[in-house]
């Protein structure tokens, strides 16, 4: 019997009842969001625009507040899962180990025979539920975020030795335009997108940079 390619993954999914990328709907227990004075609390999934912070007259305080807003995105599993501090990417809402098991490889693109793009395509596969975007790969080890506080990630983002050799202007461009970063807001299946939009995030990060790119202290 031949299976039609349009429906085969659905049949396989029903038959095998595999736990495929199901979102647990639970925030990561490993991420500590640095708290900065925000003008008002925003609902989950919402990112306030930079204009919402204009009322904070102290520039340093405004910069901290802007980073606090950006940290909602940085703490999202859609971003953290591809910034692990070890060899394995993560998946789902609680940063579970990648299933099937895979390895980072020397260029952060997998290993021979099991490269990231052996399975991940340039777009999400809705039926097979495999997420995809152009140049699917892990962030380099020196850019690891998982397990770190957003305060620590803030300092890391400003450090060219740990941010991919980028200037702050390049960081703004990267988060605003990179297609793989942009996947975080279009994750497909029932994955929870990062808050706001990529454009919103880019504006918040740009405003943070323009106000001095202040980083919060580690909370005790």
């Amino acid at each position: 019997m031949k299976l039609a390619w349009h429906v085969a993954p659905l049949l396989a999914s029903a038959a095998l009842a595999l736990p495929l990328g199901a979102c647990a709907g639970e925030a990561s227990p490993r991420v500590t969001v640095a708290v900065a004075p925000a003008p008002s609390s925003s609902a989950p999934g919402v990112l306030l625009p930079p204009e919402a912070f204009a009322g904070i007259s102290d520039v340093h305080a405004r910069s901290l507040a802007l980073y606090g807003e950006a940290a909602k995105v940085i703490a999202s599993p859609r971003c953290q899962n591809c910034h692990p501090a070890d060899s394995s990417p993560r998946q789902r809402e609680a940063n579970e180990m990648h299933d099937p098991p895979v390895a980072r490889g020397p260029e952060d693109e997998g290993v021979p025979g099991a490269r990231c793009t052996s399975c991940h395509q340039d777009t999400n596969l809705e039926l097979a539920r495999v997420p995809g975007a152009p140049k699917w790969h892990l962030a380099p080890l020196e850019m690891a975020w998982l397990g770190k506080s957003t305060a620590a990630i803030c300092k890391q983002m400003k450090d060219p030795t740990r941010n991919g050799g980028k200037s702050l202007a390049q960081i703004v461009d990267h988060v605003t335009h990179d297609e793989l970063v942009g996947w975080g807001w279009h994750p497909g299946a029932d994955r929870i997108p990062a808050p706001g939009t990529q454009k919103d995030f880019g504006r918040i990060v740009a405003a943070w940079v323009d106000t001095g790119a202040a980083c919060p202290e580690e909370s005790r």
């Binding site: 299976l3 085969a8 993954p9 049949l11 396989a12 999914s13 095998l16 595999l18 495929l20 299933d99 099937p100 021979p112 025979g113 099991a114 490269r115 793009t117 052996s118 399975c119 395509q121 340039d122 596969l125 097979a128 539920r129 495999v130």
Partner: peptide, 30 residues
């Protein structure tokens, strides 16, 4: 072979320009 249809089992592995890919999820345009 067709195994899972979701890039989870590897039964359908072929090479595209020498790289192993899961044929069950790789669109022919690639």
């Amino acid at each position: 072979k067709y195994g899972c249809g979701q890039a989870l089992c590897g039964a359908c592995t072929v090479h595209v320009d020498g790289e192993a890919v899961r044929a069950c999820v790789t669109p022919i345009r690639r």
